[in-house]
Simulated scan of single mutants.
Amino acid sequence: MTNHLVDIAIEVLKAQGHEVLQSDLYAMGWKAVFDGEDFPERANRERLSLIEESGYAFANGCQTPDVEEEQRKIQAADAVILLFPLWWFSMPAIMKGWVDRVWAYGLAYGYQGAGNAYRYGDGGFAGKRALLAVSVGGPAEDYSPRGINGPLEQLLFPITHGTLFFPGMQVLPTFAVYGTVRIEGNRMTEVDAAWRGRVERLFDDAPIPFRPQNGGDYPDRHVLADHVAPTRTGLMVHVVEAPRPSVAEECGVPVPR
C-alpha cells in the first residue's frame, strides 16, 4: 500500500509541475541508529553528547554525507510527505532513525542558537507544509474516539505536533487508509481517488490548527495561559479546534474524529 501511495503522489505532483525529491529509506540502506559514528569530527572526544556533537557538526559542515543530503532535500522542499505503515502505533524504526539523525541541533531544534525560542510554529522548517499518509492494518473502529487502540490523531500527535510542528512546519490532517491487510477492488478505487485529491490540494488544504508557542497562548513558552481552554487538558488542548475531516472520509474511507 505504501509504495502504491508513493507512486500516485509522484504522478500527481509531477503533473502539477512540481519537482519531487524522494527518499526510499529501505532501498537506501539508511542507517537508523543515531550514535557516535555520525560525528567523524568530534567537539568533545571525552564524552559523547549527541546534542553537542549534532550542533557542532551542523554548524561546522562536518556531518556525514547521508545526513547532509537528506537535509538538503528538506531545506529545498516546500512540502514534505511522510508515507509509512503504522507499526506499533508509530512510524517504523528506520523512519524514526531518519528523523533522529537529520533533525540536527541548530536546524530542527536549538534554532539560531536561541534554545527553545523558536519552536512549535517557528524554527528551521517554518514555511514548509507536511502531510502524513499512513496505512493501517486494523479497522477504523479500533481508532475511533472510543476505539480500543485510541484515536489515530492522538497516537500520531508525537509526530504531527512534535516531529513536524516543533521545527515550524504547517501540518495537514493525516490521510489514513484502514484495513489494508485486505482491500477489495472497489474500495481501492475510492482510496486512490481520495489520495489523489489530497495530493492535488497539498498547498491548499488548511493545516491542523496547532497553537503556536509564540502566538500568545503560552506566556512563559511552557504552559497554556489560565484563560485558554480552561476546562480542557491533554494532548488536544494544544489544538485550537478539532481538525477538519479529511477528504478520505468524504470519499468513503473512514477517518476517526
Rank of each mutant, 00 (worst) to 15 (best):
M1G: 02
D7T: 11
V12T: 10
V12A: 06
A15T: 14
A15L: 09
Q16L: 08
Q16I: 05
L21H: 12
A27F: 02
M28Y: 01
G29H: 05
K31T: 13
A32V: 02
V33I: 15
D38G: 04
E41Y: 03
R45K: 13
E46T: 09
E46K: 09
L50S: 00
E53D: 09
E53Q: 09
G55H: 10
A59G: 03
N60R: 10
D66Q: 08
E69N: 07
K73M: 07
Q75I: 11
A77E: 01
A77L: 04
I81H: 00
W87K: 12
W88L: 08
M91N: 03
A93M: 07
M95Y: 03
M95T: 11
V99I: 15
G106C: 07
L107F: 13
R129C: 06
L131R: 10
G138R: 08
E141P: 00
E141F: 00
E141D: 13
E141Q: 11
G150P: 05
P151S: 03
L155I: 13
L155M: 11
I159V: 15
G162C: 01
L164G: 00
L164T: 04
Q170L: 13
F175N: 11
A176H: 02
V177Y: 04
T180Y: 01
T180V: 14
V181Q: 12
N186L: 15
R187A: 14
D192K: 15
G197Y: 07
I208F: 03
Q213K: 14
N214W: 00
L224A: 12
A242W: 09
P243C: 06
S246L: 08
A248Q: 14
E249M: 11
G252T: 06
V253A: 01
P254N: 06
